[in-house]
Amino acid sequence: MRSVWRTVGREIGADAALVAAAVGVVGLAFGAIAVGSGQPLWLPIALSVLVFAGASQFVFIGILAAGGGPLGALVAALAVNSRHLPFGFAVSDALGSGWRRYVGAHLMIDETVAFTIAQQDPGRRRAVYWTLGVGLFVTWNIGVLAGSLAGTAAGDTAALGLDAAFPAMLLALVRPSLRERRMAIAAALGACVAVASTPVLPSGMPVLAALLVLLAVPAGTPRAAVPGVAGESR
C-alpha cells in the first residue's frame, strides 16, 4: 500500500481526495432524494453498493419516482451504463490481471476512467485507478447511507455548486487529450450532438449518440503506443 501511495504521488493524491469528498456529498444527496421521493431505505443503498454508477442510479430512481416502473427504470439505467463497454477497453491495462480484473471492473466509473486516461505510465495508471476507485466506492457508499438515513434533511448540492464541479472536473481531466487536434474536433462535435439530441432522445441516449461522430472523424496516426491517451501526463 505504501508503494502505491508513492506511485500515485502527493499531487494526484490531493486531487483524488477532493473528488472522493465531492462524490461523498453527491452520494448524500442521492440517498436523501431517493428516500425523499418515497423509495424504501434499502433501494438507494443496494443500488450504490451493487451498481455503483451515480448517473444511472439517479435515472433509475427518477423513473421510478415518475411512475415508470422497474422495467423502464432498468432499461434506461442500462443504456446510461453502456458507456462502460468502451471504457473497459480504454482502462483494461490499469486493472491488473487474474482476480484483480474482476474486482477492479466494479470500480470503473466516469471519474476513475478520466483520471486513468490522463496518465501515461503503466504503474501510475494502475495506482491511480485503484486508489481512486476504492476511495470513491467508500465515500459514495458512506454518503448514500448517511443521506438515506437523514432523508430530506440532507444536502442541497446546488447551493454548493457541486453540479458545476463535476463537469468542470471531467473537463480538466480530458484537457490533455484535447491537445491533439483530431481528438479536440471529435470531442467538440460529440458534445454538440449530445446536447442537440437531448430534447428528442430518452435519458442516457444523448451521450451515446455522441459516438456517431466517430463515423465522421478519422482516427489518424497514433502518437503513443500506450493504450491510453496521446499527450502529456498530468
Binding site: 480504454a90 471531467l170 473537463l171 487529450s177 471529435a186 454538440c192 450532438v193 451521450v207 482516427a219
Partner: peptide
C-alpha cells in the same frame, strides 16, 4: 481512446 474522450466530452456538455 477517441470514443472514451468523446463520451467524456458529451458527459461534460450534457451535465
Amino acid at each position: 481512446t477517441m470514443a472514451t474522450v468523446v463520451l467524456l466530452a458529451a458527459l461534460v456538455a450534457t451535465q
